Amino acid sequence: MNLEGLFKTRLANHQKRLAKYLRYVFNDHFVLVLMIALGGIGLSYAQFIQTLSFTHDQTTLVLIGIIAILSCLTLFGKLALLIQPADKHFLSTLENDWKPYIHKSLVYSLCLPSFIAICTVGILYPLFLKMNVVVSFVLCIVMILLKYVDLLRQVWLLKQNRPLKQWQSVVAMMLSSGIVFSLYFFVNIWASVICVGLFIGIMQYSLQKDTALYYWEYIVDTEIKRMNQIYRLLQLFIDVPIFEETVKRRPYLDKCFTKTTRLYYYLYERAFLRGKAELSMSMQLMGMTILLRYLFSNVYLYSGILVCMLFLTGYQLLPMYQHFSGHILLEIAPYTKDEKKRDFQAFLKKILVVQLLVASVLSMLIAFDIRLMIGILIGIVFIYIIFPLYVQRKLDKI
């Protein structure tokens, strides 16, 4: 099997594995809620557009903001190489024949950003009409071509000693995107197309003439991080057994630890604040809740959303109870199972209380309403009375 066939085989296996998980993520209930949410957001957006009116100076400022957003959006999407750890030993000898593999990877990596580009232009199109700005499908093409430039930049970074230059290349990519979009909106549409074509030519010429060897350790680490991001998103909905956990000390969070002699409470706190999956999941749910507060003004509906956030966070954290199971030193420690359950429930209460307080304060800052106290009180009752009963039933079955 050649390298091109190898990529096709790996891509088929990768898509099959993702399809298995997505079947559970996009179930009937989630799709129904998603359709209702998109409908509500679309209606609010249409009503918001109708209330807008722009002067010439305001149009210029809004266009500058849109250029900044589109430039950041260009960085969305990683190069999908589907590399496995063993490849640094077996494929490194075939570097000179790697072009077909890279080409297939570039085409596949461009699919999702292209869809995002088309959706972005469609969402912004009513705003462009309101500002009397002429926009055509050429903007989608420009965005896709800029993403292709970004993917070529990521290929360039895979070479030896290039990872140290990643931030510089990101800044250069954003500036290049800003120049292209500025040409599109303020000079001439075709000038932006010529400019992005020039960037593609420069990147391809640089890669063609580049004789540096690939940095395989960096390639493997980059692919593992990319896959972990996908699995971390899937873990919001379903358990992903092939998810690889990483632990990293965050010194700025050390002050959040509770001084305690309770063994499991001590361990659960550190596992939560130093892991990625659970911490990022709780932050994402809280961010989504605050965003919904911005979109929906109904306080009672938001109170229900707040409770749903607390339940989903607690439900997703339940597997942490088994996080230290099988550890030989903990098995011989003089600690009973009931004490472990007590520590775990205390840990859950602390996380949910902090989440409730942060979400409530930020919601008050977005739109102050004394009736939000109802949602806070319901959340407190849920944390200290209702959810502990549910957790106790679940833990008794383990």
Rank of each mutant, 00 (worst) to 15 (best):
L207V: 13
L152D: 03
C195G: 09
F199I: 11
W216C: 03
I179M: 06
K165Q: 15
I179P: 03
S182I: 02
L183H: 00
S182Q: 02
I194P: 10
L213Y: 14
V149I: 07
G201I: 04
M203Q: 15
M173G: 14
P163D: 03
G197M: 07
W156K: 02
I200F: 13
Q168M: 04
R162Y: 11
L175D: 00
D150S: 13
T211C: 07
S177Y: 01
L207H: 07
S192A: 15
Y214G: 01
Q208A: 12
Q166R: 05
S192E: 10
Q154A: 03
D150L: 09
V170S: 13
L207E: 14
L213H: 14
L152N: 09
S176F: 05
L213I: 10
R153F: 08
Q208C: 09
I194D: 04
W167N: 11
M203Y: 15
V149A: 10
F181H: 08
L164I: 03
L198V: 15
M203S: 13
S192T: 09
Q204C: 12
K165I: 04
Q204E: 13
L175K: 05
Q160H: 13
K159Q: 08
M173D: 13
W190C: 00
L198H: 12
Q208N: 13
A212S: 04
S176D: 05
A191V: 09
F181P: 03
L183Q: 06
P163V: 04
I189V: 15
S206V: 01
G197P: 03
K159D: 06
G197E: 01
N188V: 01
S169M: 09
D210Q: 08
P163G: 00
F181Q: 02
L151C: 08
L157T: 00
I189L: 12
V171I: 14
L164P: 06
V196C: 04
D210K: 13
I202G: 10
V193T: 02
G201H: 15
K165A: 09
S192R: 12
L198E: 14
V193L: 15
L213V: 10
R162K: 14
K209L: 06
Q204G: 01
P163L: 07
D210I: 07
E217C: 08
W216P: 06
L213R: 13
Q208S: 14
D150Y: 15
L157N: 01
L158D: 05
S169I: 04
G178A: 08
L151P: 06
C195M: 15
L198M: 15
L157V: 03
L157D: 00
V180G: 04
W216M: 06
P163S: 09
R162T: 08
Y214C: 02
W190Q: 06
S206Q: 14
R162N: 10
S206D: 11
L164W: 11
V180R: 11
V187S: 06
K159V: 00
N161K: 11
Y205E: 07
T211S: 10
W190M: 12
P163T: 05
V196K: 10
G178S: 12
R153P: 00
M173N: 14
Y214F: 15
L157W: 01
L207D: 12
W190G: 10
S169A: 12
W216L: 03
A172K: 04
W190T: 01
V180T: 14
V193N: 10
M174L: 11
I194N: 00
